[in-house]
Amino acid sequence: MNRPLLLVGATAAIAVAVYLLFPRAQGGNSVDAAVKASWTTADPEWLARLEQDETQKVCSRYRNTPPKAVADAILARERASIVYPADGNVMGDWKKGQVLAQSGYGGRFTDIPPRAENGGNCYACHQLDTTELSFGTLGPSLLAYGKDRKFAAAEAKAVYERIYNPQATIACANMPRLGASKFLTVEQIKDLVAFVMSPESPVNQ
């Protein structure tokens, strides 16, 4: 008597499981095939940029809202990527950080060979110093960030981590993993931490 009902139930359960396992995954292979066919003139070193690492793959698949188990795996993997300054001091020179925060230079094929160091381009997405009015809104305002956190050392370390690899804190964060990708150096990240966290920095005036 119950067999048809069981069958329906089992089928539904399998369908739900498949949906949860492969959400919006349709076309995944053809997307990669299209990518492969669409960049034919670049050299291998540049073509490697089109290949996704595991984090990029799952964040694309789940459109940046991964289920908890996947998110936890991302957080663990990305945290393991963080390299701290050898002497443990995460605060560099805020004046250098101020310059870096303005610069959007670096990493484009027109930036090769490099004519300057890569910039942090922080203002593209964040408000920082009150006197800079040309700021983006893709990220939160960081105005008075250090001051609001009483310039605590633990907060400075957290900022270092957030710049080095934001996905160690927020899985599938929009912000680039600037340290993990080696787009910025440890020294540059320290300068940016100082710009955000130093009491003398215009960010905290």
Binding site: G28, V31, A34, V35, Y123, G136, S181
Partner: peptide, 29 residues
């Protein structure tokens, strides 16, 4: 494929089209 590409994160800065064009009222600078 176009939809998949729109949300595909890649490259040294992890960007997809949706990074910048996935919400209302946002700005770059």
């Amino acid at each position: 494929v176009g939809e998949g590409l729109f949300f595909r994160r890649q490259g040294p800065l992890d960007f997809a089209c949706s990074t910048c064009h996935g919400d209302t009222g946002k700005r770059i600078r």
